[in-house]
Amino acid sequence: MAVIIENNTLKPEQIEKIKNICKSHGNNENNLINILHETQSTFGYLPKEVQEVIAEELNIPVGRVFGVVTFYSFFTMVPKGEHPISICLGTACYVRGAEKILEEFKKELGLEVGQTTKDGKFSLSCLRCIGACGLAPVVMIGEKVYGRVTPASVKDIIAEYK
């Protein structure tokens, strides 16, 4: 889903897109979080260049935008993989062995949490409770939820996307 921003420079039409999002929220800094949500769903992530445009449009320091982006775990400054993998580390999943599942994914993909594979296919992150505690431990890949995951089944799950 990530739109590639080449050589760290935004194309004019990309800048236009960001400006339009800001405008639709009245260029109001109180709406910064909603603006960031919309921008991230367009570009897939929020690199420095994008934050600069937003700051300019809302007439606020870039530091203020950066402060908000880094505060909230939902926002990311690095592009996620084509198939973002999220391991639920909510308490219910934790007591049913989520840590072992996470270890297995790390091992299989050679990734640490927060990283993306070189080919851009997979990224690994953790989240806290998606509310499917009956199926614990659960893993989300994209929008799909995998329930009652065992360390042994991790390989097969990844294989579905290769």
């Binding site: 800094e29 910064l32 979080i33 909603n34 960031l36 505060f71 909230y72 939902f74 806290r128």
Partner: peptide, 25 residues
């Protein structure tokens, strides 16, 4: 509607209000 963006501390009401104002929570 106002969307949160993943911060546990925003359950605290003053933090939640700051977040709704587009600030760090």
């Amino acid at each position: 509607l106002r969307l949160g963006a993943g911060a546990f501390v925003c359950g605290e009401e003053t933090a939640l209000i700051h977040s709704m104002e587009g600030q760090r929570g």
